[in-house]
């Protein structure tokens, strides 16, 4: 993915009022943001989430299911998408609950365009960094998987602080062999120093703790 252009961010809008859906879509279009609107949560769930930074703009009152309940359902299903809430009533307990559950912003209707755009931008940024973290971790894991079983073993022991001689004794091989595996592991993982390799082992959660 390195060097590839970032996919177009998308703003999703769920509101049962078609006029407001159109107005919001047009507002996002006016600042060059791609927007997709849905009349209900079930309509939204029928779509596959794209591989792009996304943000959801949601009314707290939706037919059938409240926006807050939908928020917790998404969380339960491990769908991590930043949410900007809109409300027709200034309901403080509801606001508190939404913010505690991780909402980006809670905007009373009618809202200022800049407030909405700022909130959506903050949501997209949050999703972008979450995606980057997730994809970095995935890349690291993929690289680690290219190591041979022996190289992974050596990497785990080295990053745990053992010396080559100790590792050789532990695995019943010569010290030279350990050095070769260790060199291969560093090279394949792209680690320029032992410290960097330790950080990678930590991120992967494979570093052995020596008791």
């Amino acid at each position: 993915m390195n060097g590839q252009p970032e996919p177009q961010p998308i703003v999703f809008v769920i509101d049962d009022d078609s006029a407001l859906r159109e107005a919001l879509s047009s507002l996002f279009r006016s600042v060059g943001l791609q927007a997709k609107a849905f009349a209900s949560t079930s309509e939204f769930l029928q779509m596959n989430l794209p591989e792009a930074p996304t943000c959801l703009v949601l009314d707290v009152r939706l037919p059938g299911l409240s926006g807050l309940d939908f928020q917790s359902e998404l969380a339960k299903a491990n769908i991590d998408i930043p949410i900007v809430f809109m409300t027709g009533h200034g309901d403080i307990p509801m606001t508190v609950r939404a913010m505690k559950a991780g909402a980006v912003e809670f905007l009373p209707k009618p809202f200022r365009d800049q407030d909405m755009l700022d909130a959506v931008q903050a949501g997209l940024d949050r999703d972008r960094s979450r995606r980057k973290n997730a994809s970095d971790a995935a890349k690291l894991k993929a690289t680690y998987d290219t190591l041979t079983a022996r190289e992974q073993e050596v990497m785990r022991l080295v990053t745990a602080g053992l010396m080559n001689k100790q590792i050789a004794g532990k695995l019943g091989v010569s010290e030279i062999t350990v050095k070769v595996h260790r060199g291969n592991a560093m090279r394949k993982m792209g680690a320029k120093s032992l410290a960097e390799l330790v950080r990678m082992a930590d991120a992967l959660g494979v570093r052995r703790t020596m008791s």
């Binding site: 006029a19 107005a23 006016s30 027709g88 009618p110 365009d113």
Partner: peptide, 28 residues
């Protein structure tokens, strides 16, 4: 009062968003 307020806020929110968008499209 709650029903009226809710009913009126809905078109007001649309009006505000549409006009803001229009201003931005004019500035393009």
């Amino acid at each position: 009062a709650a029903a009226i307020s809710h009913e009126v806020r809905q078109p007001l929110a649309s009006i505000a968003a549409n006009c803001s968008a229009a201003l931005r499209f004019l500035a393009h």
